[in-house]
Design a protein around this nucleic acid. Structure first.
Lengths: 140, 140
DNA sequence: AAGAGTAAGTTACAAAAAGTAACCAAATGA
DNA sequence: TCATTTGGTTACTTTTTGTAACTTACTCTT
């Protein structure tokens, strides 16, 4: 068991201890719901799906597929199921012909999309720096 | 080109337009630095690496590997390179025997870890809800 | 002097995940 | 009768991950 002195520790980071196990070298996903839940919600495709559903209050399968550029039917369908199971989105199917299926965020999903937007805003502000760093690194 | 009325639009979500292309069905990663940069930084393993480096100011390869439970040498090594290239972390090698290599966050990395911690805090607060949802969904 | 140990990786091979593209159902319109 | 439509599914290929053995270079033990 490792101990970290206060001086070694970075400010707010104490919370990691609670989040990712108790710093005893054992924080596998089975023992760590945060890691488990996060790996679903912050997956690349899931993130884009949730963000677009934050933008449009309701979207049908094929519309969503156009916005989440590059996603395949298969993966979109998979992710939608998981996101529904985890409570971020709802699926409403209307038995018309052809069938109409509408996806939208739950309240829970909306609270998540707010957090996600904070992160993407940071990304937008900072992505130029990252691209500049990559350039520089490439030359070394 | 799709138009969204103000009433359809969810609050802060207008920013998506700037972030993910101009709502014209074309936001591939090549045209969208945010998507590109985000896919590296918010990858599951990268996230854990950055979080642990936020907790311990400096970590060596094998220590990092113990904290980021379950990661393989290969992937750890890959992610560290990319995170270094993107400017989140620094690598310092001391030519002792055996070699000693120290990783730590750059200032930029520290500004990112703060954002990341906000997200993980949300996850910690909300993961019980997600697990409960999953249970319920499983029964349907 | 031969062998073991150590840190930080790399490499070859196997398994899992993702991408691709064709296919399906059910009703409607030409 | 045949094409069209939506929301997927399926079989197959390619890419990404995971596994575990190996490497390098020097030091310590025997």
């Amino acid at each position: 068991m490792e101990t970290v002195t206060e001086s070694q520790r970075v400010g707010t980071a104490k919370k990691l201890e609670k989040m990712f196990g108790h710093i005893d070298y054992r924080n596998p996903p089975e023992l760590c719901p945060v890691r488990d839940v996060m790996s679903v919600a912050s997956d690349q495709w899931s993130t884009l799906i949730i963000l677009w559903l934050g933008y449009f209050p309701v979207l049908r399968f094929n519309k969503l597929k156009k916005y989440v550029y590059g996603i395949s039917n298969k993966v979109l369908s998979q992710r939608l199921k998981v996101l529904e199971a985890d409570g971020y989105i709802t699926r409403n199917a209307y038995p018309e012909v052809p069938i109409r299926v509408e996806y939208s965020l739950t309240e829970f999903g909306q609270s998540y999309v707010k957090k996600l937007l904070e992160l993407t805003e940071w990304m937008q502000e900072n992505s130029p720096k990252v691209l500049a760093n990559r350039e520089k690194y490439g030359l070394l």
